[in-house]
Amino acid sequence: MLQFVIKRFGQSIVLILIVTIITFFLMNLAPGGPSSMMRLDATEEERQAIAEQLGLNDPVVVRYGNWLVNAFQGDLGLSLSSGEPVMDRIMERVPYTLQLAVWTILISVIVGIILGILSAKKRNKWQDHVINFGSVIGLSVPSFWLAIMFILLFSVQLGWLPSSGVGGASLMEQFTSSLMPVIILSTATLPTIVRFTRSSMLEVVSQNFIRTSRAKGLKERVVIYSHALRNALIPVISIIGVLIPRLLSGTVIVESVFGWPGIGRLIVEAAEGRDYNLVMGVTVIVTIVVIISNFIVDIIYSKVDPRVKNVG
């Protein structure tokens, strides 16, 4: 176990380095500068002075080096647009995104597995076709378009759900305001889980050990929901690790459309304002979140599949 954690830790550091290098250099290729320098009445000298003060005139490599040294000491710097510490700005947004992400994963996994089993059991029957059609629609319709359609229908026309914001203190309000964002986010993840569960289930039920469990006289219910499902879930668990990055990139669009004050919108704001420090900070935090969630997925995986031995 310890060995596994250490190895993983090493890999993660390398990954974070690569991600930050790419982000840093791409970001600096984009024209424009931090929005605090964009005041319309600022003179050229004033801009130069600020740029000098922020170290923006140094070569990119030097600036990345400086950023990296600070970051390793836990200092992600100050936001160039607001002057607050980057860490604070991120942390005030994290709970909102987490709220969306956790609900989306929960719903995708639970509903996805149920629909996947149903689809496999009713293979090539109408239920299977309906589920499959829904999956294709969910995966292929762009989420910004779907989000706008949802707002037009449920907020503007019917007035059932708020079109933006996080809602007030009451649970009901929180529920109604997060409902649409969660549903839109799920359209990118749920169909994948449905398909994986279906194909995995179909593959497993044709295997010999399923015949053995029937030969023992076990009821079909036990054969399917205990013997088959337990095996079928193994590949489904590993796909969850892949879905987490997809989900987080989905929040960029969904949070923007729904005015949701999470990480996804923060990175848009940061990029628009050329707030280099904030962009880097969000990148690092999101990468760490992805790494940790994949780590958790791997641990669960090894618990479910006894043939995987490298995790304790």
Binding site: Q207, N208, F209, R211, T212, S213, H227, R230, N231, P306
Partner: peptide
Amino acid sequence: IFQEPMTALNPVF
């Protein structure tokens, strides 16, 4: 008793 002992048992139990 089946022909294929290698695959006749459930790998996760």
